[in-house]
């Protein structure tokens, strides 16, 4: 299970970084979302990977070792909520930028002049 978890964190982070470096706002939003997924799994793994153990000590536990760490789960929950809100805000901002700057480039300038001439021809 360890290699599967670490591989998925690695792939998610790498994809996230690649997409964040793209020039259009939509891939950037996607990249940030993937990074948020990666960090959530990472936080989970930091509580050590356990199978079939209760999250809080229960009365049947014979020793303190027989429960999974509840704190990372709380951290992940907080991180998910925050990432949710931030992504929603970023999408709205990206749409606003698309409307005000007339393109979805992150710098607000079209890097290919060819496309703008095509638009003019269409008009």
């Amino acid at each position: 299970m360890e290699w599967l978890i670490s591989l998925s964190i690695g792939v998610l982070t790498a994809t996230g970084i690649y997409l964040t470096l793209r020039a259009r706002t939509f891939p950037v939003v996607m990249g940030l979302t993937l990074l948020a997924y990666a960090v959530n799994i990472f936080l989970f793994a930091m509580g050590r990977l356990t199978i079939g153990l209760p999250a809080v000590i229960d009365k049947y536990a014979t020793s303190a070792v027989q429960y999974s760490d509840p704190l990372p789960q709380a951290l992940v929950l907080t991180a998910i909520v925050i990432a949710f809100g931030m992504t929603a805000f970023l999408i709205v901002l990206a749409l606003k930028a698309r409307g005000e700057l007339d393109n979805d480039h992150v710098d607000g300038v079209e890097d290919k002049p060819a496309t703008s001439t095509v638009k003019q021809e269409v008009k």
């Binding site: 706002t25 930028a97 992150v106």
Partner: peptide
């Protein structure tokens, strides 16, 4: 808006 996008 442009500067705000980068900031966010």
């Amino acid at each position: 808006t442009k500067a705000g996008l980068h900031y966010v």
